[in-house]
Design a protein around this nucleic acid. Structure first.
Length: 355
DNA sequence: AACGGAATCAACCGCCGGTTG
DNA sequence: ACAACCGGCGGTTGATTCCGT
């Protein structure tokens, strides 16, 4: 189902991700964030391109990512949003918390598209949608941009938005400071405060500057998250835990977090069972190439006050300045060899035990 | 049991727009 | 103002699994 691993001409690994790579990426991102995907693979000790890392994180490793079967409600939402906006998978994904755009896209092509075609009424609506899809796509971008501007003062753009009122009001809800109930949602002050705090933490943790686009995207994401929670199988506790964990300085997995990647890391846990502290032994923990004693605490305030100190960049500066990267590269090769030996040992022991 | 086509889905590719220097 | 860089997005690919013959 997945391309086998191989190396391209630049020496970058392609194809399926291994549990080991997942662990490296997850550990690094949870600890230092991901303000620069291009530099991240080198720092995290991965022979992957930044894009590949980003995709893997966003689609599978990121806390809160839902895997598995789509619910009827989710499918209805996908169909509805697709009718509204066409192949705007990222936008649809923002309104389905926990679902990656790639997964939604795949689900559409493999399950929903044919179902929609079988339904004449829906098909008709879809055709109408598709005929104006190009126009809508353009309008969507414009209206999203407009709604951002409008959010400062009024909801004028809502009436002209090609998106449904539900979508539009979601945006308004996310972008405005008005805490009154919107679109039938009873918003308590507490939940809103929690949402805002969480959203802030979410935005801050990566050390990203709040550009117009990012503000828009992340606000949408945060609001959509709250919006869907009303009917989502994900509990509010999980949701808030998600954001909290992202903004927290303690990046160890927390109870209550919906660690969907548990499944994908099942084999990884098997390693741990076999070797106890397999991944926490020095050569592996260092795995992130950043020693535990790295003076990270002085930057931790970043997460709290949101002032633009980027932990990731600090790591980069320190490590590049003293040629640590070169050292780590050599060190990493040794680590890789040791890891491979351990994996071989593990499988050998498994084979022995089963035979 | 063997084969081949269909289905699935993780991952890659290339383009585009925003940001930065 | 401009070029380079970077992240995000949607389309596509291809390995694997499923299922019918």
């Amino acid at each position: 189902m997945v391309r086998g691993p191989f190396y391209d001409k630049n020496g970058l690994k392609k194809g399926a991700w291994t549990p080991e790579e997942d662990y490296k990426l997850k550990s690094f991102v949870q600890r230092y964030g991901h303000s620069n995907w291009c530099k991240l693979p080198k720092l995290a000790g991965l022979s992957r391109c930044g894009k590949s890392c980003r995709l893997r994180w966003e689609n599978y490793l990121q806390p809160g990512v839902k895997r598995g079967n789509f619910t009827k409600e989710e499918e209805d939402l996908i169909i509805k949003f697709h009718e509204e906006a066409g192949n705007k998978w990222s936008m649809i994904a923002r309104n389905l918390p926990g679902r990656a755009d790639n997964e939604i896209k795949n689900h559409w092509h493999t399950h929903l598209k044919k179902n929609v075609k079988q339904n004449p009424k829906t098909c008709e609506m879809k055709e109408q949608s598709e005929t104006s899809q190009l126009c809508k796509a353009k309008e969507n971008r414009e209206s999203e941009s407009e709604s951002l501007h409008a959010s400062d003062s009024s909801d004028q753009s809502l009436e002209s938005s090609p998106l449904s009122k539900e979508l539009s009001s979601t945006k308004l809800f996310s972008l405005s400071r008005d805490h009154s109930p919107v679109n039938g949602i009873n918003c308590t002050e507490d939940s809103l405060a929690s949402l805002e705090t969480s959203a802030n933490a979410f935005g801050n943790m990566h050390g990203r500057k709040y550009t117009k686009q990012r503000f828009e995207t992340e606000s949408l994401h945060a609001s959509a998250h709250y919006h869907i929670l009303e009917s989502s199988p994900l509990s509010p506790e999980v949701s808030s835990a998600k954001f909290s964990s992202l903004g927290s300085t303690d990046h160890s997995p927390k109870p209550g977090i919906n660690w969907i990647e548990e499944d994908s890391l099942a084999s990884f846990e098997t390693f741990e069972e076999a070797f106890g502290d397999f991944w926490t032994e020095p050569f592996v923990a260092g795995y992130t190439y950043i020693p535990d004693e790295f003076p990270i605490s002085q930057y931790i305030s970043y997460y709290d006050d949101g002032i633009g100190i980027d932990v990731f960049d600090q790591v980069m500066q320190i490590r590049e300045s003293d040629h640590a990267v070169k050292f780590c590269s050599c060190f990493n090769i040794l680590q890789e060899v040791v890891v491979m030996l351990r994996i071989c040992t593990f499988w050998a022991s498994l084979l022995n035990s089963t035979s």
